[in-house]
């Protein structure tokens, strides 16, 4: 896989960096095996593996409701959705692997608590309406980011994102359809939908990352074509699209300062509680321990299974060689 990661101390670093940046400026994709700065690789591994972990941990809050889905159709949709999240984790681990990091190393980082994943999944799913709301808001926010990353300069990440976006659109739509259905349903259904919107709105805004002023990596990532928009830009797009739709559905949003600004065409939001964001990121959210514990348990309980197949495969290969 990639063999050449340039360091600033390399004699030809400046020349190659200029060439690399020119390629990105021309809109070319960087592929495994191409020269790239070590820092580009490092940032990508960080982003892609965090993203993969988020998909895998993200299976848990929703997966917990598969056995309680209220209709055959919703149950089917939810299994397919959570399965897609596993698939997205799978695509993303692959993209990171093309940069020379192994699945074993990435999982070790996740299970030991060293690696980060999206803070949103450390919130509990308290009712069935959370499933629709996660689709509408959380996947809605994720798509904003992913659509941007589909343009990313690194080929394998960009390809994973193109596939993921195509599939996520279904996640977003089924969630929106579900919440809108409940918003015009029985009083209990409507109250459940409103409660879910109230709990997920702020975390959804936070999951798009800290303000640009607190996001030190952003300028480099934008220059190298990894990101094409800043966190605040993506967040604004998300609010502009979702706030009016939620209000039109007859639901309210838990932000007394939220208003439409005629001059800019933007929906202006009130202050975000970043203390809560950092507390969750740093391991003190309501579900951090449970989520990691569930991953560790599945990993440990699967160890004998992985070993059994490895032993079977080795034995088969030996037999084949002997013959």
């Amino acid at each position: 896989m990639p063999r050449k990661f340039g360091k600033p101390t390399d004699p030809d670093y400046e020349a190659r960096l200029a060439e690399f940046e020119a390629r990105i400026a021309r809109g070319e994709k960087i592929e495994p095996g191409d020269w790239m700065p070590e820092e580009y690789r490092r940032q990508l591994v960080r982003m892609i593996s965090q993203h993969a972990h988020s998909e895998v941990v993200g299976m848990l809050p929703e997966g917990a409701w598969i056995t309680r889905a209220p209709s055959l159709k919703r149950k089917m949709i939810l299994i397919a959705k959570v399965q897609d999240e596993a698939g997205h984790g799978q695509y993303l681990y692959h993209a990171a692997e093309t940069l020379g990091v192994t699945r074993e190393e990435m999982l070790e980082a996740l299970l030991s608590g060293k690696a980060k994943y999206s803070s949103i999944f450390n919130y509990p799913t308290l009712t069935w309406a959370d499933i629709g709301t996660i689709g509408w808001l959380v996947d809605g926010a994720a798509i904003k980011n992913q659509t941007m990353l589909a343009q990313c300069s690194y080929g394998p990440y960009s390809r994973a994102m193109v596939r993921i976006c195509a599939e996520e659109t279904f996640h977003h739509k089924q969630g929106k359809e579900m919440v809108i259905t409940y918003a015009k349903g029985t009083p209990k259904q409507r109250a459940m939908a409103q409660d879910a919107i109230n709990r997920w709105w702020w975390p959804a805004l936070m999951m798009l990352g800290p303000h640009d002023s607190d996001s030190p990596n952003t300028p480099t990532l934008v220059k190298w074509g990894v990101k094409t928009k800043t966190n605040d830009e993506v967040r604004q797009e998300f609010i502009n699209e979702h706030a009016p739709e939620i209000l039109e559905a007859g639901l309210t949003l838990p932000d007394p300062d939220l208003r439409y600004d005629e001059a800019t065409g933007n929906w202006v939001h009130g202050p975000i509680n970043w203390d809560e964001f950092w507390a969750v990121v740093n391991g003190n959210g309501p579900m951090n321990k449970e989520r990691l514990e569930a991953r560790r348990r599945a990993h440990a309980e699967g160890a004998w299974v992985r070993e059994a197949l490895a032993v079977y495969a080795a034995r088969k290969q030996q037999t084949a060689v002997a013959v």
């Binding site: 159709k73 089917m76 949709i77 397919a80 897609d84 599939e167 659109t169 279904f170 977003h172 739509k173 089924q174 929106k176 359809e177 809108i180």
Partner: peptide, 10 residues
Amino acid sequence: YKQQSYYGVV
């Protein structure tokens, strides 16, 4: 049901 067009209603 895995296609977004299935949710055309939205």
